[in-house]
Design a protein around this nucleic acid. Structure first.
Length: 833
DNA sequence: AGCACGCCGACT
DNA sequence: GTCGGCGTGCTC
């Protein structure tokens, strides 16, 4: 692709004064702060037919050349002051991975709402798009006498280029020349014609995987008369596939159906009777779907919900609507999703299904694939580049119309979205914890508004905000209060550890030990839940009180026995665990605060015959590890599954009759207004893993806070009881849903500077903040040092009806650029940590 | 982020 | 005069 130089200062002609100019607003793909969201370029007439929203274009920008993405197309009057200063689009880059019109609107919404630049929002939607680069190659026009009589820097560049055989990529040349003022001298050489440039667009390295596949060649007129039954069988099979429109055929498939060998196939290829073609194959994440399942008869509750949804996706389409599907655990929400998707596909539209954990995607995908086959595509962060590329392309080309995945699947490249399902909508994992800090549930609602789609928010324990919306009429409320087959909810029992500890000091109360013994004796399975990984929360020297702390973060190091290391759960720092105290050389080092590793050790000690599986971040880091552990447990190769919150959500194991919560106190004591809600949700969810089959389940929760209302309500599994109490507290203290928060995090490598900055930023905000917005702080952030940065924070609390993001954005723009660089914003934070 | 532009001192 | 060093501000 050769660039034509854009006219720097073109003179307006009469024609241009009377005609409007076609321009494209382009998002520039360079990583730079303080840029406008888009820059406008003139569209040369010959490129006009190629441009739509999302098209990748090659443009000149700020003296450089980069790629950008068309965000909007419009025409501007010749009288517009910009009109005379616009550059032309240099070229169109075809077949680039991009976004559609609705996604462009989503990106705008994300950048406005969560306060990030448009380019980062687009990076969420089309991450692969930014893999492409403009590569400029510089070549010497002539070797002879090229550098005679030139300024020293210019001849230096020429000499370097000669050494590189007269030709090099510009970046390489710049590096080799090692000149501080490279650009000036280089452009002078280009101007003089001593160096000429050529440009290509380098694409992302991920491409489709192609394999050999076979089809019939020209009509089989040539008969050599010889008998070759194997070849005949191959030809017969190929004819059948051809008629069904399913050629070319993969060799494994062809040979297994035809009962032939490769030699027979090879002979046919040599004769030309069969031809080889290449075929894109899907690098499928996970196993192929098992046999197709059929829709079971819906229960009364499922049916009521499905009827309402059916009405939305068929009659009300394309108007957007939202329903909270409030169904107790094991009430069969998945079946309602399947029914809704089926109806959506029948209207010719597509669907997105969000699940909160990667651990759950495999199970959900399995269920969905067995109903919808290849229509299902999977998207989550643990896919390989190739798998992601393939799934992405299948969705983009509408070969698959159901996208299933974690948070980022809300950006699945599907056209004409009819339905978005957000399963376990209350989960905090839908919130991205780095910039842009979007909540996929809220993005889904906005996306549905833009596409005119129906949204189903499913949960047994809805977020307070969601239930509040439903009962105040902002969305529909579909209730399913009964479990499938009217199975009873599990019985839940609280164990008061204060009493227990007086007589029996152990990780497991006597009641829990009894429970596990019974479960094992009956050939059933148990899940033990503890929301802390590692062996111990920290180690302490009994002689001098030394505690190993992270050098980069303000936290203690956790002890992991499997690797015998101390590890920081925030930054990943790790070092060998000491045997003697580094401070006093004492040997009485003790562990405190139990984690899942310790639970595993104790279980093996107390129940030596039980087969144990453990699932937490440490055992699931390897690709496919989730699926492996769950498969082992499902196939009853393990009796007890120990895990962190990944075992609490959505898993469906009919043989589990006992759930033990080792300690309910970790989440209840969090310094956060959502601590009670989190605790209630987590306990109710984990309790819901018990008794999903024919046998009733029981749940044993150990705690030092048995009176706390979130535990009391979890025992009764009474969401509405919990809601009534919690909503009063929220209203009294003006917490969401009666207000909205924005959290400003100020960070700096120096602890003194960060305090001053936080103070100055708070002062600046106070000057501009409308009266109804309350500024809380500044104060050191609960996690006051993270990855070697000291952190302070400022909380802003606003009434629900003010445009919070806009106000915060104004506040930020009034800061000095030095201050601005140290602030990161979290709109609607999930926690203030 | 990069790159142009402008002002300034050093050297032909 | 001309070159190159570095600070500032803009990028359709």
């Amino acid at each position: 692709m050769i660039a034509r130089p854009a006219r720097p200062d073109h003179e307006p002609t009469l024609w241009e004064e009377t005609e409007d100019a076609s321009v494209a607003d382009v998002v520039i793909g360079v990583d730079a702060p303080d840029l406008l969201p888009t820059y406008s370029y003139r569209i040369p007439a010959h490129l006009e037919p190629l441009l739509t929203v999302g098209t990748c274009v090659h443009v000149s920008f700020g003296g450089r050349e980069t790629l950008g993405y068309v965000f909007a197309l419009r025409s501007i009057p010749a009288t517009d002051p910009l009109a005379g200063r616009l550059k032309d689009i240099i070229a169109v880059v075809e077949d680039a991975v991009t976004f559609n019109k609705e996604q462009a609107a989503s990106a705008k919404w994300i950048s406005d709402t969560y306060i990030c630049d448009l380019a980062s929002a687009i990076k969420c939607i089309a991450p692969a798009a930014f893999g492409a680069r403009v590569v400029i190659t510089a070549a010497l026009s002539s070797f002879e006498g090229a550098s005679d009589g030139l300024p020293i820097n210019q001849s230096h560049i020429i000499e370097i280029l000669k050494r590189l055989d007269g030709r090099a990529e510009l970046d390489e040349l710049r590096k080799q020349a090692a000149l501080s003022a490279f650009s000036g001298s280089y452009t002078a050489l280009v101007r003089k014609g001593l160096i000429y440039e050529s440009r290509i667009v380098s694409r992302s390295k991920v491409v489709s995987k192609q394999v050999k596949a076979y089809a019939l060649g020209f009509p089989t007129a040539v008969q050599d008369g010889k008998k070759s039954p194997a070849q005949d069988r191959i030809l017969k099979v190929l004819e059948e596939f051809e008629q069904a429109g399913k050629t070319p055929v993969l060799p494994e498939k062809l040979l297994s159906v035809a009962q032939s060998s490769t030699s027979a196939l090879k002979a046919l290829v040599d004769k030309g009777t069969v031809v080889v073609r290449s075929l894109d194959v899907r690098r499928a994440p996970g196993p192929a779907p098992s046999a197709r399942s059929v829709a079971p008869k819906l229960t009364a509750g499922q049916n009521r919900a499905s009827q309402w949804i059916a009405k939305q996706v068929t009659e009300n389409s394309p108007y957007s609507s939202t329903a909270l599907l409030f169904g107790v655990t094991a009430s069969g929400k998945t079946e309602v999703y399947l029914d809704a998707i089926d109806r959506t596909l029948k209207t010719g539209r597509s669907a997105i299904v969000l699940v909160p954990e990667i651990a759950l995607t495999a199970q959900v995908v399995e269920v969905f694939s067995s109903r919808f086959g290849d229509e299902v595509a999977v998207l989550h962060s643990k896919l390989s580049e190739g798998e992601r590329h393939d799934e992405w392309r299948r969705l983009q080309q509408s070969k698959a119309r159901i996208a299933v995945g974690a948070r980022s699947a809300v950006f699945a490249p599907v056209d004409n979205i009819g339905l978005i399902v957000v399963d376990e909508e209350h989960e905090s994992s839908y919130k991205q914890e780095n910039q842009p800090r979007y909540n996929a549930r809220d993005v889904a609602l906005e996306c549905a508004r833009l596409n005119g789609s129906t949204v189903i928010l499913g949960s047994a324990t809805p977020a307070l905000e969601t239930y509040f919306s439903a009962i105040t009429g902002k969305s529909a409320l579909l209730e399913m209060p009964e479990r499938i087959d009217n199975r009873p909810l599990p019985s839940v029992e609280l164990i008061d550890l204060r009493d227990e500890m007086k007589e029996h000091r152990s990780l497991f109360s006597r009641r829990l030990i009894d429970g596990i013994e019974h479960t094992l004796a009956n050939g059933k399975q148990a899940i033990l839940f503890l929301n802390r990984r590692g062996y111990a929360q920290f180690i302490l020297c009994r002689d001098c009180g030394y505690v190993a702390r992270c050098p980069n973060c303000a936290v203690s190091l956790a002890f992991h026995s499997a690797w015998n290391v101390l590890r920081c759960h925030h930054c990943g720092y790790s070092r060998k665990a000491p045997t003697v105290c580094p401070s006093c050389s004492g040997t009485k080092i003790k562990t405190f605060g139990v984690g899942t590793e310790k639970v595993e050790e104790e279980v093996m000690k107390c129940f030596p015959n039980a087969r144990v599986a453990r699932m937490d971040r440490d055992t699931t880091s390897r690709k496919g590890a989730h699926a492996g552990i769950l498969k082992r447990f499902r196939e009853r190769d393990a009796d007890i599954l120990i895990g962190t919150q990944m075992v609490a959500k959505g898993l469906d194991f009919p043989n589990v009759t006992l759930v033990g919560v080792i300690s309910a106190d970790t989440s209840i004591n969090m310094p956060d207004f959502r601590a009670a809600e989190r605790t209630f949700q987590l306990l109710t969810q984990v309790a819901g893993r018990a008794g999903r089959g024919e046998h009733p389940g029981e749940v044993i929760i150990q705690t030092f806070n048995p009176e706390h209302y979130s535990l009391q309500m979890a025992v009764k599994q009474d969401y509405k009881g919990f809601y009534d109490q919690e909503i009063k507290f929220r209203e009294e203290l003006k917490y969401p849903p009666f207000s909205r928060f924005a959290n400003l995090i100020i960070s700096d490598t120096d602890s003194g500077t960060v305090r001053q900055q936080a103070q100055a930023i708070a002062d600046s905000f106070r000057m501009y903040l409308p009266e109804e917005i309350e500024l809380i702080g500044p104060a050191p952030a609960p996690l006051s040092k993270l990855r070697n940065s000291y952190r302070w924070h400022i909380a802003l609390r606003a009434p629900v009806d003010v445009p919070l993001s806009e106000i915060v954005r104004n506040g930020l723009s009034n800061l000095t650029t030095a201050h601005r660089r140290h602030v990161s914003v979290d709109i609607d934070p999930q926690s203030m940590v």
